[in-house]
């Protein structure tokens, strides 16, 4: 059964059409990769789905409910959560408090929320920074904190915007492994990423975007055989 249906989703900024008639259906527990050159509209698509931007046209149905035009906090509470490529931590608060803010939406009592936040922090292996101010975390830690905050809302659908960007290669493999585990545990994921090795390792289907439009959608390995797609959008290394 489908968890997310996007129908004819379009966003125009005065003259520019940033997202142009996107139609996708995401099945429950699916891992859908999204690739495309810079400016293809991937992040704008995320902003539309998660309610940061209102769409110009189109419809978004999440878990059987039409959520088109809902504000971001309501969408997040409903279980559709995104992360940002440039992290938005609460710098003056500790890592634990950062995550606990999200946990509070699922647990009424402070103690339960705190315990839940701790469990999520352990899940993303951020234990050693539990009581450090978020502002003092290294990039790899901030990426995990952003992920932990999203997971604390116990999302049904997680939109990940370049969680690997800015990580040194040594830090990428454990992150890819963690994302694979989360997916194996039943999380549905939309995954924007430039690093093709990660996209191919994790994605079950792949959406290729170009100038806001949907260029191709299908099996990632077949797509790497499609010379035109590869040369134009995945980089010449893969051609």
């Amino acid at each position: 059964m489908s968890l997310l249906q996007v129908e004819g989703l379009t966003k125009r900024f005065s003259g520019l059409t940033a997202v142009d008639d996107i139609n996708i259906t995401v099945a429950d527990k699916e891992f859908l990769g999204i690739v495309g050159p810079n400016g293809a509209g991937k992040t704008t698509l995320f902003s539309l789905i998660s309610g940061q931007l209102p769409p110009t046209h189109g419809r978004i149905v999440f878990d059987g409910v039409d959520i088109t035009g809902w504000p971001a906090d309501k969408v997040a509470s409903a279980g559709l959560v995104r992360t940002f490529q440039l992290m938005r931590p609460f710098e003056s608060m500790t890592a634990l408090e950062n995550v606990a803010v999200a946990s509070h939406h699922r647990f009424r009592s402070r103690r339960d929320a705190r315990r839940h936040a701790l469990a999520v922090i352990e899940r993303v292996q951020l234990d050693r920074y539990v009581n450090a101010p978020a502002g003092s975390l290294p990039t790899a830690g901030l990426k995990r904190l952003e992920l932990a905050r999203a997971l604390a809302l116990e999302p049904k659908l997680l939109l990940l915007d370049e969680v690997l960007a800015g990580l040194v290669p040594a830090d990428r493999a454990p992150m890819i492994e963690l994302l694979g585990d989360l997916h194996a545990d039943g999380l549905t994921v939309l995954f924007i990423e430039h690093i093709m090795a990660a996209v191919l390792a994790l994605s079950e289907r792949l959406l290729v975007m170009h100038e806001g439009a949907q260029l191709a959608l299908g099996n990632p390995h077949e797509m790497t055989q499609d010379r035109a797609v590869v040369e134009a959008y995945l980089g010449e290394d893969y051609a």
């Binding site: 971001a72 906090d73 940002f84 609460f90 803010v101």
Partner: peptide, 19 residues
């Protein structure tokens, strides 16, 4: 905690479901 979160980063707060 919600007040402090909004104060630190209102976009991030909306992201975790804070109105």
């Amino acid at each position: 905690m919600c007040i402090r979160a909004v104060s630190a980063n209102s976009q991030g707060a909306a992201l975790v479901g804070v109105n």
